Amino acid sequence: MSDTRTEAAVPEARTARSGQSTSHDGSGRTQIADAVVAKIAGMAAREIGGVHAMGGGAARAVGAVREAMTGGDSSVARGVAVEVGERQAAVDIDVVVEYGTAIQDMAAAVRRNVTSAVERMTGLEVTEINIKVGDIHLPDDDQGDEDAASESRVR
């Protein structure tokens, strides 16, 4: 008698879905979601000196609004997009760099740290890491915020 089960009838833990890495070691499958790899990459990128913030202007603005509404921390995956296959991952990272930072050196350090963290934690081979520097943080950017905060709008 033949097995007439369809793929839809197979339990979710045994099917590969898009956005996840699936490995099989003989005793079961391990699935790693894109969001997991994005968080690992985001944390690793933030550890590098010269990285002021992550994400483009719109992503930072939306994140600030979300943080204000929920009272929570900003997402560690902000500014990170990943594509995860069965054995490999590709990562795109948007950063804001501190003024004075050697961008090429910072980018190389981010690539090394992200590659090391993702490969060590997931076992996936990182095939590429694209870094987009969308802005540069100037020293007087913070001073303007402090001046505005210290001045009262009402007298």
Rank of each mutant, 00 (worst) to 15 (best):
M69Q: 12
G57P: 11
R46Q: 09
P139L: 08
T22H: 15
E128H: 12
R78E: 02
A89I: 01
E86H: 14
A64R: 15
T22F: 14
S18H: 10
T30H: 07
H137G: 02
G50W: 09
A44L: 03
I32N: 12
G144P: 01
T127A: 14
Q31S: 12
E83D: 11
R78T: 07
R111Q: 09
P11I: 07
D105C: 02
G50T: 06
A90H: 09
V133E: 01
R111W: 01
N113I: 01
G63V: 02
K132V: 04
R46W: 01
I136Y: 07
I93A: 05
Q88M: 09
A109N: 14
I40H: 03
A64W: 01
T101K: 00
V82H: 10
G134H: 12
G19A: 09
D73C: 08
G19V: 03
G63C: 03
S21Y: 00
E67T: 15
A44C: 04
A33E: 08
R17D: 04
I103N: 00
R78M: 04
E119T: 14
G134W: 06
G50F: 05
T122K: 06
A35W: 06
M43I: 10
Q20A: 11
A45H: 03
A109Y: 02
V76L: 13
D141N: 13
D25L: 12
K132H: 05
A53E: 10
I40A: 12
E47R: 15
I32G: 11
V118Q: 06
G56I: 05
R14Q: 14
V126I: 06
V97I: 14
I48W: 04
M106W: 01
A35L: 08
G42A: 13
E151V: 08
T101W: 00
E47V: 03
V80D: 04
A108H: 10
A61M: 12
G28W: 06
I93W: 09
G57L: 11
R14N: 12
V96D: 01
S74M: 13
Q20I: 02
D140S: 12
G72D: 13
M43Y: 07
D73F: 10
R14Y: 10
K132I: 02
E47G: 03
R87A: 10
K132Q: 05
E146A: 13
G144N: 09
N130F: 02
Y99K: 08
A59T: 13
G42M: 09
L138R: 15
R46V: 00
T22Q: 15
R14K: 15
A89C: 04
G134M: 07
V10H: 11
G123P: 00
M121F: 04
D135C: 07
I40P: 01
I32P: 02
I48M: 10
T30S: 10
D25R: 15
I131W: 09
I136S: 01
V84P: 05
G57W: 11
T15Y: 10
V126D: 03
D145T: 12
G123V: 00
T30P: 01
V10Q: 08
A68H: 08
